[in-house]
């Protein structure tokens, strides 16, 4: 009888310990990742530096693209515009953000002009190639130039198609790729609820 109680106790202690280790290591891994996100310096279309801290209580919805892109990028940003019109028309919860991964051609003036044609205000950002590489890597996105001739000014850029939802604390989640506003709106709501429950969980875990 005693043996059984002891083994149950050992199992309980062991699971509590491994749970705690997982809890703490996960906490630090995320902290390390979000620190990297804070370090990458991005600037807006007026040349002012921007950090995820300025999101405050809003959830940023980030798209990585370039203004030379006439198909995938406007289609995605337009889907986002319509989706947000449906679920957050006053923009109290979400901040749509376009980050150009083509800083060589996309000067602030060009990004500003490009975003002016959408029916909603989209925050335009870019940075140095180094900062962009670090930011995209730590959020889980990627981009690469597709340029055969180095003289060719009409080069294309391959980039992640999906949006990312990010908090001012640096917690980010990918939003599954959807090619129409209705499905995108649903995906945004789903990821938002995951973000919300995650941040509640983090408040508890910060006690440790």
């Amino acid at each position: 009888m005693k043996k059984i109680i002891y083994s149950i106790l050992i199992i309980l202690v062991f699971s509590a310990l491994s749970f705690g280790v997982f809890f703490i290591s996960d906490h630090y891994a995320q902290k390390w990742q979000s620190n990297k996100l804070f370090k990458a310096k991005l600037y807006d279309v007026n040349g002012k530096t921007w950090s995820i801290k300025s999101l405050k209580d809003k959830l940023g919805i980030i798209y990585f693209g370039y203004t030379f892109c006439p198909d995938a990028c406007p289609t995605a940003l337009n889907n986002l515009t319509i989706a947000l019109e449906k679920i957050d028309s006053k923009k109290l919860q979400f901040e749509p953000i376009f980050i150009s991964v083509d800083p060589n051609r996309d000067k602030p003036k060009i990004i500003k002009d490009y975003l002016s044609s959408f029916d909603t205000i989209i925050l335009g950002l870019t940075g140095t190639d180094r900062d962009l590489k670090s930011f995209t890597f730590n959020i889980g996105a990627t981009y690469s130039l597709s340029r055969e001739d180095p003289e060719d000014e009409n080069y294309l850029v391959n980039h992640t198609v999906g949006f990312f939802m990010i908090t001012s604390k640096g917690a980010s989640l990918p939003i599954p790729y959807r090619n129409n506003p209705e499905d995108l709106a649903r995906a945004i709501e789903q990821i938002k609820s995951i973000q919300m429950s995650n941040s509640k969980f983090k408040k508890i875990s910060s006690i440790f």
Partner: peptide
Amino acid sequence: TVVKNEVAKM
């Protein structure tokens, strides 16, 4: 425009 491994490529 082709989407492969979540990356768009023209």
